[in-house]
Design a protein around this nucleic acid. Sequence first.
DNA 1: TTGTTTCATTGCAATATTACGATTAATAAG
DNA 2: CTTATTAATCGTAATATTGCAATGAAACAA
Lengths: 110, 110
Amino acid sequence: MGLTKTEIFSEQQNEIAVFAKAFAHPARVAILQHLFKMDNCVCGDLVIEIGLAQPTISQHLKELKQLGLIKGNIEGTSVCYCIDRENWNRMKKLLNEFFDQDISTSGNCC
Amino acid sequence: MGLTKTEIFSEQQNEIAVFAKAFAHPARVAILQHLFKMDNCVCGDLVIEIGLAQPTISQHLKELKQLGLIKGNIEGTSVCYCIDRENWNRMKKLLNEFFDQDISTSGNCC
DNA sequence: TTGTTTCATTGCAATATTACGATTAATAAG
DNA sequence: CTTATTAATCGTAATATTGCAATGAAACAA
């Protein structure tokens, strides 16, 4: 099939999965790291920096934009991307709640 | 293609992507949440709890085990799974470093 | 032994993802 | 106008992922 059965999971579980998908590719990790490092928002520089073809980078940027993790601004012929800090923090909070559910101190079988 | 060019990325970037892939499917999110919630480690219960076929759950468990996030213990005919807390914390640290790189206070174009 | 239970593995079909060449659209420069 | 430059989109090939029926393997019960 190849089709995820999203309807049998909770909204929270699906949201975690969707955000995680954003980081599930090293190119998108690299893009986000670069956008954090640069103060002035880069754009076509990412193509040179990362070493993938322009359509490939453009596609990854589109996915990150659709998720709301980055924003794009047209400046002449070039487009300037940067982190959407509000949504980034929302995502951070959601994933940290998931990471920090390890409250139990009791032993288990393993 | 469909083949990720891992060789052009840093080890850290690839590691983040590989861990993120673990959470990039709601079934695996649900499995991990259930393992955290239960003190005695479940196993075939996951099939009932989650509502996917047994081979499908088994496959997701295999991926999580290969990543080191969970461990499995054979107990008679059943297998008892639980979180590998050491690796879980390693993963948590790595991803939190990635999430918390937002130190810059300067404005940008967007 | 023969069944039963529990889980892993195999094999396969449907769909998703990754990557890029070719093209297009929009702006800027001449 | 024409010609770059920049980035999005289209089309397509290669590969990965998801899901499950069928089967296999191991432990247990009778």
